[in-house]
Design a protein around this nucleic acid. Sequence first.
DNA 1: TAAAATTAAATTGTGTGCAACTTAATTTCA
DNA 2: TGAAATTAAGTTGCACACAATTTAATTTTA
Lengths: 151, 151
Amino acid sequence: MTQHEEQQTLQTYEQLKLCNQLCFPLYAASKEVVKHYRPYLKKLDLTYTQYITMMVLWEKREINIKELGDCLYLDSGTLTPLLKKLESKGYLKRSRLPADERNVMVTLTQTGSDLRQEARDIPGKMGTCVKLSQDEIQELRNLLHKLLETL
Amino acid sequence: MTQHEEQQTLQTYEQLKLCNQLCFPLYAASKEVVKHYRPYLKKLDLTYTQYITMMVLWEKREINIKELGDCLYLDSGTLTPLLKKLESKGYLKRSRLPADERNVMVTLTQTGSDLRQEARDIPGKMGTCVKLSQDEIQELRNLLHKLLETL
DNA sequence: TAAAATTAAATTGTGTGCAACTTAATTTCA
DNA sequence: TGAAATTAAGTTGCACACAATTTAATTTTA
């Protein structure tokens, strides 16, 4: 192996280190942030995935599963059982759309709407445990959105 | 409700929108990036979690489960079955440490070491599908590391 | 030094997350 | 128009991910 080839091999292996990855800190940070939500969500008897689902419903009141999946980057395999669970808690109703029976509409109930009150403080509380400046948070959010768009 | 209170309520609810969250783009981007790894990892018959585990082993050759969990932000509940699977594929050996029988040492095998060759191209291929500049990637990585440290 | 506390893995149970497939409804187009 | 293609949900199976608990080994300390 020539010196140049050896150099290349080292560089290649260097890239296989965890610390040089973009993906790994993304994966780890995502899990850690969700972990910080859990104690607050537990009080509402919601998981993180159930929480972001409710966030969409608080905003839109009504949405079909396909669109919901597009919002949340989740498929019906994940959403169907999750929505059944939220329905059993009384937070939403599921019903086939008469105009196109393939579609299932998910509609916020009064109970589900009321839950928003109890969730009000969560974003603020989370904000205080993230020790980044407002500028850094904005910058991070921008980069993540850019990354998401390109994928 | 006074105008001021109404204003505050609106602001509070504004923060409960998905687009104003930091956590959600983090969660979504993480999943999407992992999804892009999958076709490459499938050729090596590895899941993403198995891949990052192998990355640690390629770097350290030998590590106990506790430390591995600290590296990967994973606990024994996730790692024990995952390591058994990697052991059954012949990539590593697990053995109790004689000096302290509570510890299980995980050691890279020759087969596991050879796998590194086949994984060599993955970081480069992933790099090309992330449409961010080198500066942006570096900035994103820095912010994520900073976020991880503070949590 | 022996009981109490701590520690590391493993186990159990629940909830995603997703690929692959099935089912049923609707749309396309030959 | 009627068969083929497409679409939306649901189902199945596998692999995490983690809280909570258990087990076994080691360390602390009364």
